[in-house]
């Protein structure tokens, strides 16, 4: 069915700098119809409630890379916490009040000699309970296909040129583990507070496609 339809918002950017996506005022799609139908059926059958769905959305919206940054910053300033994080990532997150969920978290540490990067080639597994929902590029065929074979080239496209002497370790989240990279603390950050350090830690630095910002 042809729709002589307005595409007003596509050139504008949202407050977070992303293009707006089709939402409530766009023509209904088949798959949206299926979502509404399933949701209403599950509510009618008392399998779930509207409030439960809303609560779940709000819970996911609350999670963001800032949660992960807080964990990493703590590991930078507290050697005992860092050892805990590397030994049992899920328990260490929980200790800071971030509910890790049923899947276990493994933290992998970047050093002067080793750079870690995370991918899920089979689907889109991501430490969503610590970092929020994954960025779109993490879910693309291009990233999932290439980073296991040519990680250095992919990282270079992300602006990260690694020296030949550094070992790259790619982690494919194939099963029940989720991974977060513990980036190396940048030089020149001695004396910075935990909160200031957290500001340097980007989402990409915890996936391994970036490194923390350097202090200005």
């Amino acid at each position: 069915m042809p729709h002589d339809h307005h595409d007003h918002s596509h050139d504008e950017l949202s407050p977070s700098g992303h293009p707006y996506r089709q939402d409530n005022d766009e023509p209904l799609t088949y798959w949206q119809t299926m979502e509404i139908a399933m949701r209403e059926l599950l509510i009618e059958k008392e399998i779930t409630t509207a409030a439960e769905i809303t609560a779940r959305i709000e819970e996911m919206d609350r999670r963001s890379p800032a949660d992960g940054a807080a964990v990493i910053a703590r590991a930078w300033v507290d050697p005992e916490y860092k050892a805990h994080l590397l030994a049992d990532g899920s328990a260490a997150c929980k200790a800071m009040g971030f509910e890790p969920g049923v899947l276990r978290l493994i933290a992998v540490e970047n050093t002067a000699d080793v750079h870690n990067v995370v991918v899920c080639t089979l689907c889109s597994c991501y430490p969503r309970n610590l970092l929020g929902l994954p960025p779109d590029w993490y879910k693309t065929r291009a990233y999932r296909s290439r980073v296991v074979k040519e990680p250095r080239k992919v990282l270079a496209e992300f602006g990260l040129d690694l020296p030949d002497g550094m070992t790259v370790r790619v982690h494919d989240s194939t099963a029940d583990m989720r991974y977060v990279v513990l980036p190396a603390r940048p030089e020149g950050t001695e004396g910075m507070s935990e909160a200031e350090l957290a500001q340097l830690i980007t989402r990409d630095s915890m996936i391994g496609t970036g490194v923390p910002k350097t202090p200005t």
Binding site: K149, R152, T167, R169, S173, T174, D176
Partner: peptide
Amino acid sequence: EVWGDAAENPDDTLDAEIY
């Protein structure tokens, strides 16, 4: 091991969970 001569850097590694 994974990519043979096509490896970008032979000493880099790949970790995966296998049952």
